[in-house]
């Protein structure tokens, strides 16, 4: 650990010492915005989606006095389309942004180093490794989990979501022209509903792991995690190499 030093221009009442730390700018603004928009949209989509499949108790009174199911569906469709629009922007940012912005969109499948990294990180999570390694971007295990249970399933959810939405919009809608091919793979849309529903649970499971890992890494790892998704800066807690 670095000894505390006095930092020029920083004043405090107790003569306390600050610690100098390395930081790297990792997550650019579009990536951060995307992250929090996703968090909000997916929360809305999960809650409304659940109530579309298993509606709330029946509303009493006249049908003309209520639009509960309609509003729930509207929120679901609106959040879904926001999610899809931001996903498109994010795809643009794969090419326009920095290297870290690309990380969760591919797997270095043929790289031996990468899989060694996954093994080491897995060992760390199984309490077998003494200390984790330092990573500027995502650690290899995180990259694997994000790619396989978030990036790809999200595409699946957007595509099946638009296909299901196109059923209400009609056979001549652009949604049906663009996404109607889903029903060539699964001709009965009940099947697509079931798969879309399973996809939701994949994302819920991902969210549990993601939030837990983010909190745990923030405490246990050698770099900042949660604040990085707000400021974009990755702060390293020690200066030791590797």
């Amino acid at each position: 650990m670095v000894d505390g030093i006095q930092v020029a221009g920083v004043s405090d009442a107790h003569g306390a010492r600050a610690v100098e730390r390395q930081t790297v700018y990792v997550y650019e603004a579009p990536v951060r915005v995307w992250h929090w928009v996703n968090a909000l949209c997916i929360t809305v989509l999960f809650v409304t989606g659940y109530f579309i499949a298993s509606p709330l108790p029946s509303v009493p009174g006249e049908a003309s006095n209520s639009f509960l199911m309609g509003n729930i569906r509207f929120a679901h469709f609106a959040a879904g389309q926001v999610l899809a629009a931001f996903y498109l922007l994010r795809i643009y940012w794969i090419f326009a942004g920095n290297a870290h912005g690309r990380q969760i969109f591919y797997l270095p499948f043929w790289s031996r180093d990468y899989w060694a990294g996954v093994a080491h990180e897995a060992a760390w999570y199984l309490f077998l490794a003494k200390a984790p390694k330092k990573y500027v971007g995502h650690n290899p295990l995180a990259q694997l989990i994000m790619f396989s249970t978030f990036t790809v399933p999200l595409i699946f959810m957007i595509v099946t979501g638009f296909a299901l939405y196109s059923e209400g919009e009609g056979i001549d809608s652009w949604q049906h022209k663009a996404f109607g091919w889903v029903f060539l793979i699964w001709p009965n849309s009940q099947e697509v509903h079931t798969l879309h529903h399973l996809g939701m649970w994949v994302l819920v499971t991902f969210a549990i792991i993601h939030i837990y890992a983010a909190v745990r890494e923030d405490i246990m790892s050698r770099q900042s995690i949660i604040s990085s998704m707000i400021s974009g800066e990755r702060i390293f807690k020690d200066e030791a190499a590797d």
Partner: peptide, 11 residues
């Protein structure tokens, strides 16, 4: 359909 949109269901 209006009952569906209103959230009125046979339980």
């Amino acid at each position: 359909r209006p009952h569906f949109d209103a959230g009125q269901f046979v339980e």
